[in-house]
């Protein structure tokens, strides 16, 4: 269970972006969150991924209450949630090759020796050719880079996935491919999904239940 209760979050004191948001994702469930641009849904996604400390409210992850965000969250909690962001260009370190990009979480958590095999398997699943893995982010397209970012999010086999406008920058066929990768992973692992976006048709077909922003948070 990933539970967000009465979350108020923002970047400046006294001017919250998200006010009093409630959201629950059950294990194995796919929840879509629909909202217009600038409403605060990305901020809420960052709170859910333990990347942004809310000003008020509680997040409960698998029954235990979250007390710290970012580096203050225990590594086990942080890595239990895989995140994919909207802009692959900004979410990839420009100095790492796609292979290193995907393997980075394994190296960071001291599982270096699994890297080669896992990267091979995930690049096959996400449809990245071997020649692409040696390239750096500026040498591949947005769609190819987003495939690598999705592979990176899956590499630690998270129990939860937060996809923040994962497909907003991509064409229809890449969108379909990435959604298929996420769904295959969820079928195998039983992971829960929070998919944030503004594309009603996509989210309603993808998710078990889709919530509008005004159902989740105070305006």
């Amino acid at each position: 269970m990933l539970e967000l209760d009465a979350i108020t979050a923002g970047y400046e004191r006294g001017a919250p972006v998200v006010r009093d948001a409630h959201l629950t994702v059950a294990a194995g469930e796919a929840v879509g969150l629909l909202g217009p641009s600038g409403c605060g849904k990305s901020t809420l996604a960052r709170v859910a991924a333990l990347l942004h400390r809310p000003d008020a409210g509680t997040v409960t992850l698998d029954g235990s209450r979250v007390t710290g965000w970012r580096h203050r969250a225990p590594r086990g909690q942080r890595t239990a949630i895989g995140v994919v962001f909207q802009q692959p260009r900004l979410s990839a370190d420009p100095r790492l090759s796609l292979r290193d990009l995907i393997a980075e979480p394994l190296r960071a958590t001291g599982r270096r020796d699994e890297a080669a095999a896992t990267v091979r398997e995930l690049s096959r699943a996400t449809g990245l050719g071997d020649d692409l893995l040696g390239r750096r982010p500026h040498e591949v397209s947005d769609g190819q880079l987003q495939r690598a970012c999705l592979a990176r999010a899956l590499v630690l086999r998270p129990r939860w996935l937060v996809c923040d406008e994962m497909t907003a920058m991509l064409d229809a066929s890449t969108t379909a491919a990435l959604v298929a990768v996420v769904e295959t992973y969820r079928r195998e692992s039983g992971a829960g999904l929070l998919a944030v976006g503004h594309d009603r048709v996509l989210l309603e077909r993808w998710c078990d239940r889709t919530l509008r922003w005004d159902e989740v948070a105070a305006a």
């Binding site: 991924a49 942080r78 895989g82 979410s91 980075e104 960071a108 958590t109």
Partner: peptide, 26 residues
Amino acid sequence: SRPYIDAAVSGGASRWRVAVRHLLPG
């Protein structure tokens, strides 16, 4: 404040690793 630092944090990187691997080379 770039998302790739967020991604590294989410991927379990320690403060030190974020500094040495992602910030310093930049």
